[in-house]
């Protein structure tokens, strides 16, 4: 079944940008494409694409490059583009912390665990404000596509696998490119025609 409206694709991180730049413009024109990168490469001017640099969007004077510290900036970004509750597709590499931060904000296991502990504890236990600075985003209407990690280090690949397990609960459909790709032409043509067709080209990790 063909989709009528232009869907938004959020390309997260450097790997996604690399794929985006190699993807056919004609297939990209079917979608509204937004890119978010952590930082600008030296004096780079990407005026022809809709790209946001997180460290310029949200200057991080006292934040490090970690999932916890990137939570607030990425949530602010998602709120600003008012895209968090709409349909659409998020594409990224699980080994990139920027992408991990977005997936983590869709469903944070630690946070849920703490909430449960408080809920089932005795009355005398004071309720802890577990949210603090941490924000959860509702991304349940979105699909997520994990690119095949190009990262050569085993611990970072393990990290990426943990992120995939979080994505199972935070997104509508979770897909994974089953091989290293240089572009997503084929997948995006199929995704435009319908998710079922696109699924044949990717590995569904929903179950």
């Amino acid at each position: 079944m063909a989709k009528k409206n232009k869907e938004t694709i959020l390309w997260i991180g450097d790997h996604a940008k690399h794929i985006f730049m190699n993807t056919d413009k004609s297939v990209l024109s079917f979608y509204e494409n937004k890119l978010i990168l952590f930082e600008r490469e030296d004096n780079q001017n990407d005026s022809d694409i809709d790209v946001t640099y997180l460290d310029e969007f949200y200057p991080m004077f006292n934040r490090t490059y970690s999932v916890k510290d990137l939570n607030k900036p990425v949530c602010d970004y998602l709120k600003q583009i008012n895209n968090n509750s709409n349909d659409g597709l998020i594409i990224g590499d699980g080994s990139e912390i920027l992408f991990q931060a977005i997936v983590d904000s869709s469903y944070n296991q630690d946070l849920t665990l703490k909430e449960k502990q408080v809920d089932f504890s005795f009355q005398n236990v004071e309720k802890i404000d577990v949210t603090n600075d941490f924000q959860l985003m509702n991304l349940m209407n979105k699909d997520v596509l994990f690119l095949k990690e190009a990262m050569p280090f085993s611990d970072i690949i393990q990290e990426a696998n943990k992120v995939k397990s979080i994505a199972r609960k935070g997104f509508k459909n979770k897909l994974e490119a089953n091989k290293t790709l240089n572009n997503l032409n084929e997948f995006l043509w199929d995704y435009h025609d319908g998710l079922e067709i696109a699924l044949q080209k990717t590995e569904d990790i929903s179950n």
């Binding site: 991180g13 450097d14 690399h18 080994s95 990262m151």
Partner: peptide
């Protein structure tokens, strides 16, 4: 494949 994005990620971390 161009590996610039890998080195960028490693250096950021």
């Amino acid at each position: 494949m161009n590996n610039n994005f890998i080195i960028n990620e490693i250096l950021r971390r």
